[in-house]
């Protein structure tokens, strides 16, 4: 049975992902941070109980997101005419053969990607809380969740709602539904969740839960 742990001494080093400077790992106090001395990128920022908080906040985001999809979002009234719009209506506003792709992109960035990120993170991290090993594909799930981060645009969408309301408010009366407030709340929670996420610490925790495989081309 070959040894499955990677070479041990390399574990003590960290390469800054932004500038490739090589440092010996120095873990900060909980709540503190280690930054790259050359380019100032934050390398390690551990928080006690971060994994529990990330999973708990993720479940809250999931509940709010599902709720926000089915409750009324915005409604306008003018001279007896009225129209209600849900988040789905906004996402699917672009119709016609060439604009359908735009609808798909908007749906993905404001609903699909945020939901996928929550599900992937929870799948990867929730088993750690119960002391079980990492589920199959759990490592990949966490990496994908992090790679998707820039494509999750819920916070930009909610600011866009603000701008749109200013444009419409002269024209008609606008009623803000519960889905708007739920969506705003989930944006804030996601921002909080992202600040709790220290990649290095989480990968350490995943390593501790089940050893990493030896990469191809390496003899253990």
């Amino acid at each position: 049975m070959p040894q499955t742990r990677p070479p041990h001494d390399l574990d003590d080093y960290i390469a800054c992902p932004a500038c490739d400077a090589l440092w010996r790992v120095r873990e900060p106090e909980p709540g503190g941070r280690t930054t790259c001395a050359r380019c100032h990128t934050v390398l390690i920022r551990p928080r006690p109980g971060a994994i529990l908080q990330i999973v708990a906040l993720g479940l809250a985001v999931l509940v709010l997101l599902v709720g926000a999809l089915f409750l009324p979002f915005l409604e306008i009234r003018v001279r007896g005419f009225s129209n209600a719009s849900s988040i789905f209506d906004a996402a699917l506003a672009f119709s016609g053969p060439e604009l359908v792709w735009l609808s798909l992109a908007v749906t993905a960035t404001i609903i699909g990607v945020p939901m996928a990120r929550v599900l992937l993170t929870t799948y990867a991290l929730a088993p750690l809380l119960t002391g079980r090993g990492v589920l199959p594909g759990g490592r990949r799930a966490f990496r994908w969740a992090e790679e998707l981060r820039p494509w999750s645009m819920a916070e930009i969408f909610i600011l866009g709602v603000g701008v749109a309301l200013v444009k419409v408010v002269d024209l008609a009366r606008v009623e803000i539904g519960p889905a708007f407030w739920m969506f705003s709340a989930l944006v804030l929670i996601t921002l909080l969740q992202d600040t709790f996420t220290c990649r290095w610490t989480i990968w350490k925790a995943l390593d501790a839960a089940s050893p990493a495989e030896t990469p191809k081309g390496l003899t253990p």
Binding site: P6, P7, L10, D11, Y13, I14, A15, C16, P17, D20, L22, L43, R139, R140, F142, R143, E146, E147, R199, W200, W203, L206, D207, A212, E213, T214, P215, K216, G217, L218
Partner: peptide, 25 residues
């Protein structure tokens, strides 16, 4: 310069010829 390759995702270092990060893939 140290003959290593750093993972751009999880910051782990590996010998230069490593094709995939053994920690995060």
């Amino acid at each position: 310069e140290a003959g290593l390759v750093g993972c751009p995702h999880c910051a782990r270092v590996w010998p230069m010829e490593t094709a995939r990060c053994g920690r995060c893939g």
